[in-house]
């Protein structure tokens, strides 16, 4: 197990290097720093001096890969690649356009993001799995048919509609919870209620239908027939046998997103004014803050790879047949 984990971790390194090179190519080779400077400064104020100053302030004035003018080891280190991209590996993200340190910003914004993402994730999983189980239990009845119809209809509705409609109905018409905003501490619950509820409802359609298919597939297998044949009640069959075995395909899709919960949700956070990482990313995109977007891309892929490894570990926990040796 340990050897396997170690191998997976080693395998993650070339992938992260690939991600790093890819973002580097996107941000610095497709467009030169000169182009970015022109874009940020606006058309009117573009003079060679202004561009040079803009680049020097942000450390974009070095060569891309190889600094022939520097001495010794600095030939490789005094380059844009080393200062901007290679340093991401040690968690040094540099400063945003407004001069603030990106790493500190990420640490402070992680809390609100998690406060929304974790309840949404857990509640969403509980609700969708139980709904899917219900539909599978009543398979081939009117309840199942209309349930699937409702699922297809719900997954055809834009995520924006859930948010806009929910805010309008619950906050504006019924005035149950504030429309947006956030406070630190325990009082945050009333700001979290609506985004979490909307997040759960928006996810029901596609997930419940997907899990139902998994359950139905599992119920067609021989061991289920054996279980019924030896006289087990339908509920024991469903909960003790089908649910447990269906966990493996469900885990594949679920565990991988757990680390990504740190990143928050772009839409929810920006609509509800939650100062999390999702709204940080959106603000950075709108302000064309390349340093922040670059850092978020890198963190996102680190978390995704962590999710893949977690998925493998969770397999061994739920399925004793799987051993990595």
């Amino acid at each position: 197990m340990l050897a396997y984990l170690l191998r997976r971790l080693l395998y993650a390194i070339p992938i992260l290097i690939g991600v790093n090179l890819l973002t580097f190519a996107l941000f610095f080779v497709v467009n030169t720093p000169d182009d970015m400077a022109r874009m940020q400064l606006g058309v009117k104020r573009v003079t060679p001096e202004a561009i040079a100053k803009w680049k020097a302030e942000r450390g974009y004035d070095a060569p891309l890969f190889w600094n022939g003018e520097a001495a010794g080891l600095e030939k490789a280190t005094r380059t844009i690649f080393f200062t901007k991209s290679a340093r991401l590996f040690v968690g040094d993200f540099g400063a945003a356009e407004d001069g603030r340190d990106i790493a500190t910003e990420i640490r402070t914004r992680m809390g609100p993001s998690l406060a929304i993402a974790i309840p949404t994730f857990i509640l969403g999983l509980l609700v969708t799995v139980s709904l899917a189980l219900l539909l599978a239990f009543f398979r081939a009845t009117a309840l199942d048919f209309w349930g699937v119809v409702a699922c297809v209809a719900m997954m055809s509705i834009s995520g924006l509609f859930y948010i806009i409609g929910g805010q309008w109905l619950i906050s504006k018409v019924w005035r149950l919870v504030p429309i947006s905003g956030y406070v630190e501490g325990l009082d945050a619950w009333k700001f979290l209620l609506l985004p979490v509820a909307i997040g759960v409802v928006a996810g029901i359609g596609s997930s419940a239908r997907w899990y139902r298919t998994i359950f139905l597939e599992e119920m067609g297998k021989d061991y289920v027939r054996t279980a019924r044949a030896k006289g087990l009640s339908e509920s024991v069959v469903m909960f003790r046998h089908v649910l447990r075995n269906a966990m493996i395909p469900i885990l594949t899709g679920v565990v991988v997103v757990i680390p990504l919960l740190f990143m928050g949700s772009l839409l929810t956070e920006s609509f509800f004014g939650i100062p999390g990482l999702g709204s940080y990313t959106i603000d950075a995109i709108n302000a064309q803050d390349f340093a922040v977007v670059r850092s978020m891309v890198f963190i996102g892929s680190v978390l995704y790879i962590a999710g893949l490894i977690l998925t493998d570990i969770s397999y061994t926990l739920v399925d004793p047949r799987i051993r990595f040796d």
Partner: peptide, 18 residues
Amino acid sequence: SIPGVLLIAAAVLMMQVV
């Protein structure tokens, strides 16, 4: 392994500059 929205955001930002 790059979250989809972020990769798209990065690429679209760069396209805008071009």
